[in-house]
């Protein structure tokens, strides 16, 4: 019991922090606790949440993926070309987008494992390649996304059902309890949990944690280290492309923006840390990073309702990030043996 609490301390802290921030935000908002605000908040959170989840998997393994933002941008650009036309074409477009991102992640994994190049520097380089491909596909911002899909995915369950004529145009009695839940939130939870929770329980999933805790011990125990590393980067590619696909549907366009890709990568690292995952690896999980991404976003929501001088916003964001990561320093004050500080 005590161990379970200690192991999830970071995660519990993140959930608590998010709950407090979110409830206070909603109470201060003039139209707080309304469906419209929920939908808007959910829409703005999904992309960064997916990218943060993508970043989590390599970080758990003790690595880092500096290409997640770039892979998201690449998926965003592919989707802006393909996700339109007949329903079958739309499905095909979504499939190709996610497949491309996953394949890119697989390539990252193969380079790291077979080439034995450090993840940081390997993904730094492949990130440049992903941006280059994205620029080739979409030299200038734009694109064409199916309007119905855009409307259905970025609103509530009711709007989704109404758009596609499901459940009596969304008026069916059984749908009523769910009618006001934002679709993006459902997508995030379903894709995230349906992929991550089963994966975590497999040998490969557990090996990722083992490699992050002590790679030497994992190797000695005969765990499939190579497979786990490749899987971690592939999964990162998958989640990042889900984020890119969603961003394309949400904004109805693709944009190969280098600055935006960099910002997503950096924010993903911040979200991972806020969500209670250790950058050393071995501790944490994808669900925590989802919460971490929500915390990051709630901060930017505050700027809107508090009408803080826009010029001060980057400074406050930076201070919050710095303060959040410094919380991890508390444990160094409790260390009795100085030697334990050095690895």
């Amino acid at each position: 019991m005590r161990r379970a609490f200690l192991a999830n301390r970071g995660f519990a802290g993140a959930v608590l922090m998010f709950a407090v921030l979110f409830v206070v935000y909603q109470s201060m908002h003039p139209r707080g606790f309304s469906t419209a605000v929920f939908v808007q908040n959910a829409n703005e959170t999904v992309a960064i949440a997916f990218v943060a989840m993508a970043q989590t998997v390599p970080v758990l393994m003790g690595g880092l993926d500096l290409s997640v933002g770039a892979v998201m941008t690449l998926a965003n650009c592919i989707a802006s070309e393909l996700v339109n036309g007949s329903p079958l074409q739309i499905l095909f477009g979504c499939f190709v987008t996610v497949l491309a991102g996953t394949a890119f992640g697989l390539m990252n994994g193969l380079i790291v494992v077979l080439g034995r190049i450090q993840p940081i520097i390997a993904t730094l380089a492949t990130g440049a390649i992903a941006i280059g491909l994205a620029l080739t596909i979409r030299p200038s911002p734009g694109g064409d996304i199916d309007d119905d899909l855009n409307w259905a995915i970025t609103n509530t369950v009711f709007d989704f059902a109404e758009t596609y004529g499901l459940a009596d145009d969304g008026n069916a009695a059984w749908l009523a309890p769910f009618a006001n839940i934002p679709v993006p939130l459902i997508l995030l939870l379903v894709i995230g949990l349906a992929v991550w929770l089963p994966f975590k329980r497999t040998v490969t999933g557990r090996t990722i944690y083992a490699v992050g805790s002590a790679e030497g011990a994992a190797f000695m125990s005969g765990l499939p280290i190579a497979r786990a590393k490749i899987a971690a980067f592939t999964l990162a590619g998958f989640f990042a492309s889900c984020g890119g696909l969603y961003l394309a549907i949400q904004t109805s366009s693709g944009n190969a923006d280098v600055t935006q890709a960099g910002a997503y990568t950096l924010n993903s690292i911040a979200a991972v840390v806020l969500g209670g995952t250790s950058l050393m690896g071995g501790i944490g999980g994808v669900v925590g990073s989802m919460i971490g991404a929500c915390i990051l976003r709630v901060f930017s929501f505050y700027f809107r309702i508090l009408s803080i001088d826009p010029l001060l916003q980057p400074l406050i964001e930076g201070m919050v990030l710095l303060a959040a990561v410094s919380l991890g320093a508390i444990k160094t004050l409790r260390v009795r043996n100085t030697l334990e500080l050095f690895r």
Partner: peptide
């Protein structure tokens, strides 16, 4: 403070950016 340099210098970078924008 033993904070990983990756994340600490990243935070310092955002703070410097914020200071300069202000």
């Amino acid at each position: 403070l033993r904070i990983p340099s990756m994340i600490f210098t990243l935070g310092v970078d955002s703070v410097m950016r914020g200071l300069m924008v202000a």
